[in-house]
Design a protein around this nucleic acid. Structure first.
Lengths: 252, 252
DNA sequence: TGCGCCGTTTGCGCTTCAGCAAAGACGCGG
DNA sequence: CCGCGTCTTTGCTGAAGCGCAAACGGCGCA
């Protein structure tokens, strides 16, 4: 999954075939977002795109900026961040490889509602916004997948509202960790590790609390043998135990 | 919660004329959701629908139930409610006349993610889910409007997450009131009133707090001359003053 | 290889709110 | 017109968790 180093901007490709100017359909073949499409359709879709590389911690787009492009993440992890008028920030979600993002066009917006920051070095396909309507109508499976994604995000966001309304901090942080591990976990010896750098502050911004509280909770859980911590690193060693906390079935 | 029931399901329509079985296009003509459509297109759309009436406090659909229909609210106000596994409930949003709802089909779901309860007696157009794909592709403007609506709801929900993360209860309740007044306000003498019955408990479930806290806040604001309260009734008399509180620019 | 920065840990006081309890009031139905 | 149910108000108490402050430690850079 992780694409270490080295990858060229890929914009300028080795001047390959005729219909496919540099992007090979094997990049996206078989991925859910492009399921059920014929090879030449994949080529057509890729013909409108280019690949771009984004260095760790750089902004792919900024909240409020004109939505000139939409994206498909080929490799890496992206943090979607919203800023309040008062300058505080909240992490809306993380995007993993294989997901569409920045699809403001799909919902008829002309600016991005949030910023996207590369959590690690990333590679993404980039299409101009103007192509959205064309792609979505010409390839209904693609459109349907995008709208399903949108719906899932709406529901996840509402789940978060429910958590914040009904659970206390300890449970919310436990839920957030479990979600991260499920969506972006990498099996390591002795547990599952979140496979991108994530700070206590980041976790706090996902759960509506402070880094202090997160740190305290993680310390406690580390003593209890549920997780292992590290600088910008969390490894869950006892997912079941954490689930008990998340469900509120275990006292502190 | 309790349904004083009485009115018939209204499923069986009066088996009217040929192309338009009982529904006149004037019902939806000129509404944003159906903008830019020709009269016979409106008729076609209505041909697949029937109108139904829902008594106050009855469920139009239930969370988790199979999504057999989607809806357009002609008149009334609907409360969209999600229940937690532990039995607590959270109000996701209110639907006003002129909005689509229950569009699980649009995002490829086959069950409703929340329940819809009529806050007052309501009238809605009802289409079978199977017609969604047909309508959305045959009338692109209609589909685009639906997806725009979806996107707006996603953003509103994220705004709520941000509020809950960064603001305290007082500000959240003030924001919620202002939003209600903006979306469903009715001008009355001396202020703007939320034009459907809404209890302190409802407001608490919208803002992630308790009815006690909401009651205390409203009492305080009433003394300060910002709102007037009543049984299942709130009137905002000084929206600007309330805004100051919502923005945190005024101390208690 | 040493320094400095940034992320992390931990303690302490204090504010904000939820939880519990009980009484009051508004309106509907009989 | 009266009684009852539901919604609302209000006080008190306890505690979750935020804010502030300070110290620690690991990683990367010079």
């Amino acid at each position: 999954m992780i694409g270490p180093e080295g990858m060229p901007a890929a914009d300028a490709a080795p001047a390959g075939g005729e219909t496919v100017p540099g992007l090979d359909r094997s990049l996206i073949e078989g991925l859910p977002a492009f399921a059920g499409m014929r090879p030449q359709e994949l080529d057509r879709i890729l013909a409108g795109a280019h690949a771009a590389r984004f260095a760790k911690e750089t902004a792919i787009f900024e909240q409020g900026a004109e939505a000139t492009s939409f994206f498909f993440l080929l490799d890496g992890h992206i943090r979607v961040v919203r800023n309040t008028a008062e300058g505080q920030q909240v992490i809306a979600r993380y995007i993993n490889a294989g997901e569409l993002f920045g699809i403001a066009a799909a919902i008829g917006r002309d600016t991005y509602p949030a910023s996207a920051i590369a959590a690690v070095d990333c590679v993404a396909l980039v299409w101009p916004t103007g192509l959205w309507a064309d792609l979505a109508s010409r390839y209904p499976g693609f459109g349907a997948h995008a709208y399903r994604t949108l719906g899932q995000r709406l529901q996840e966001t509402q789940n978060r509202v429910m958590e914040m309304s009904t659970e206390q901090v300890e449970q919310r942080v436990a839920h957030a960790l479990l979600r991260l591990v499920r969506q972006s976990g990498r099996k390591v010896e002795g547990g599952i590790e979140i496979d991108f750098p994530i700070s206590r502050q980041d976790i706090a911004e996902m759960t509506g609390t402070t880094l202090h509280t997160v740190s305290r909770l993680l310390s406690g859980w580390e003593n209890a043998g549920l997780v292992r911590g590290g600088r910008q690193k969390v490894t869950v060693t006892d997912a079941h135990g954490l689930l008990l906390i998340a469900e509120g079935r275990r006292k502190k």
